[in-house]
Write a protein that binds this DNA or RNA. Structure first.
Lengths: 251, 251
DNA sequence: GCAAAAGTGTTCGGGCTACACCCATGG
DNA sequence: CCATGGGTGTAGCCCGAACACTTTTGC
């Protein structure tokens, strides 16, 4: 079989600030190559697939810290094409500020997902060069004793169905992970404000959170530093770091 | 690449009852073939890997209802051998009472896992024909921004390291799923007593639960039938069914 | 009668939600 | 002064843990 590896890379970027007195807002982004595909690599039978994926990420971005986990393996003739049959997908989270290289051939796309209906979601991918839109149909299928959450590309798009499904699956995995792991911190620098962290949560979960409650919920996970950020015409914020002792809660 | 599929199949069986006045206890089991391996199949490039796995399960047990999900894909030269390189593993849950076929070449092994130390667990697999023991070392590795929960076979055993790791990974997945999905019901018949359901939870989570609290927690997920089970010298129990309406809580 | 499980009720505490309120800042 | 976010406090609610208690059965 012809086996390939690909990666769905999530990151965040700051939105342009229209009102200088307001908080700097974030947006979610994913990475596509020049063919509107998720970056794809050949498997190397001398090393573990994850190592290959890591090396490619390092090569692409000159980055040393990032989050990676295996997302899913697609082994469905429906999605075979001339370049691959089986595809092992890894989910990656990077912080754009760590990037040390000029990225060619790759573009960051702002991703927004809007519920159109009970079972339909409209996805918009926007980059400087290009906009891509598509609609995803989601439904659950009960088969035997298993429940499957299915995604299908509805209509045509510049993105191929498997990539659309992978992006959806990746986002769903992020949502499942965010409350039980420290993935949210992978989007940020070592030091961050609580607002920044809250924005990551809000982007991933796609809902507004009450900041007073968010603060109390995540307080045990973080440590205050003596650094202060003066951002705009409002009270400065302390910088915080992840509290490594909190890891035991997840082990 | 040479790609194979394998399955880690979990099920339960009743323990022998030493005291007729006590509740019938359950034990967790897994399925191994005559070589102490997890059942392994060739991939078929005409159908999705999961379909192949399903068909093999149906073929093996003559069973129509079972739970299946993709567990992990092992693409690590460390585990390559002459028969496979990449291995796509599926997690399966069956109910032994549904089995319609005489099983040859396959054995059900009672599995027990005991903490020996902070980082070591002793696993015992017992069947009528054979006992297998091994020790697993578990540790967490923080690499880049990802935390990995590693398992290693400690010392020698009749079971190969990859199979030991897969069994561990499968059990961990069961533990993660049991509170957020309806997998527990896949171990049981359509109708069951609350005690049976509690036993499934206790086996998977490896801890005793307080039945009064378990009952209240589980009540919204189930529906009482008008069937009664008289088991022994104690109050008979109602039979319950899974409440399909509860599925929406997990979607 | 008694052991054992089925089933009900009560209390307590922690965590989440909603919301009120003060603080600090620079426009 | 005031909009805006930083940060604290509090009251209500729900859920899980612990545990006491009643019911029903066959030995």
């Amino acid at each position: 079989m012809n086996v390939k590896i690909n990666v769905v890379i999530f990151t965040t970027d700051n939105k342009e600030r229209k009102d200088v007195r307001k908080l700097r807002e974030k947006k979610l982004q994913i990475v596509l190559d020049e063919n509107n595909n998720l970056p794809t690599f050949d498997i190397n039978n001398k090393e573990e697939a994850k190592i290959t994926a890591c090396n490619k990420i390092i090569e692409m971005f000159g980055i040393s810290k990032f989050y990676i986990e295996q997302l899913y393996t697609w082994a469905d003739p429906q999605y075979y094409d001339e370049t691959h049959e089986i595809l092992i997908t890894y989910l990656v989270i990077i912080n754009k500020n760590n990037i040390q290289k000029n990225i060619e051939n790759l573009s960051f796309y702002d991703i927004t997902i809007k519920d159109e209906d009970v079972n339909f979601q409209k996805v918009t991918l926007e980059s400087e060069k290009k906009n891509i839109e598509y609609k995803i149909e989601t439904y659950t299928r009960k088969e035997r004793d298993s429940i499957e959450y299915m995604n299908k590309l509805f209509g045509d798009s510049e993105i191929c169905e498997l990539n659309a499904i992978i992006i959806h699956t990746g986002l769903k995995r992020l949502r499942n992970r965010i409350d039980n792991t420290n993935i949210a911190f992978s989007f940020l620098e070592e030091e961050f404000t609580i607002s920044e962290l809250q924005q990551v949560y809000e982007i991933i979960l796609d809902k507004k959170l009450v900041s007073a409650n968010f603060r109390k919920k995540i307080e045990p996970m973080i440590k205050k530093t003596d650094q202060i950020v003066k951002e705009s015409a409002y009270r400065p914020s302390a910088r915080y770091k992840f509290n490594e002792n909190y890891l035991k809660n997840w082990v």
